[in-house]
């Protein structure tokens, strides 16, 4: 069981790091209006409504020995799981990042430009600090969602201990073989960790600065 826990944690951590970079990159390069933006946004929302098995099925087709990406040899490997997780959890990371960046007032960027900051400088000195909570919330949500995924992993990863057997897949197997005691432990662990992650996220999903301006003493006055 420990092997599965570590594998799940590794998968979730790696996917989260990739997702934050990919989501930020997509937001930055995507035009802010027009048909292309609508199309890409819609495609990225698909994992929210599609059964995970559908995504898993298409991924399997692409990655299988007969598929176009067969040479990468990713089917039934940990790397294949990472690709599947990134695609499946993308909307959960993209949306909070997009919302928090969009909430930044244009006047802050103008101010930074007046103070001599160029576009890249503005990203690091204005966008990142002001959207910080959005990024944290996105990372937590992406991590929790990857921990909990099942369908995609079963389709493209199978059930290989130490390689693709993550917590949710192990739980399925334990129930199949009738080991209810272990299944209870594992379920309780997943339930508790998900609850804690969501609780942590709610601390960041509201803007720190919104709270700050509503109640100036929130942070204890001057630091």
């Amino acid at each position: 069981m420990l092997e599965a826990i570590l594998l799940s944690a590794k998968l979730a951590l790696l996917s989260t790091v990739l997702l934050v970079f990919i989501a930020t990159f997509i937001y930055l390069v995507l035009p802010k209006q027009g048909i292309l933006q609508n199309l890409v946004n819609t495609v990225m929302m698909l994992p929210l409504v599609l059964p995970p098995t559908v995504i898993g099925f298409y991924l399997l087709l692409f990655l299988s020995p007969q598929g176009p990406l067969a040479s990468w040899q990713l089917a039934f490997t940990f790397e294949g799981l990472v690709i599947g997780s990134v695609i499946y959890s993308l909307p959960f990371v993209y949306q909070p990042i997009r919302n928090s960046i969009m909430a930044i007032e244009n006047s802050h960027y103008e101010l930074a430009a007046i103070m001599g900051a160029g576009p890249l400088d503005r990203f690091f000195s204005v966008t990142l600090p002001l959207a910080k909570n959005g990024f944290i919330a996105a990372a937590i949500l992406g991590f929790a969602h990857t921990l909990g995924e099942f369908g995609v992993i079963l389709m493209i990863g199978g059930n290989i201990p130490g390689e693709t057997q993550v917590l949710s897949v192990l739980l399925y197997e334990l129930v199949e073989v009738g080991d209810y005691a272990s299944a209870h432990e594992l379920s309780a662990l997943l339930l508790l960790s998900s609850f804690c992650l969501l609780l942590l996220m709610s601390r960041f999903s509201e803007s720190w600065f919104a709270k700050e301006s509503a109640n100036p003493t929130f942070k204890g006055g001057r630091n």
Binding site: L111, A112, I114, A117, G118, V126, P129, F209
Partner: peptide
């Protein structure tokens, strides 16, 4: 010539400071 390359300072009616 982009704003950040111009040698100027601009003080507006309000909101002249970055909040963070």
């Amino acid at each position: 010539k982009q704003t950040h390359k111009r040698n100027l300072a601009y003080v507006m009616q309000e909101a002249n400071l970055l909040p963070h």
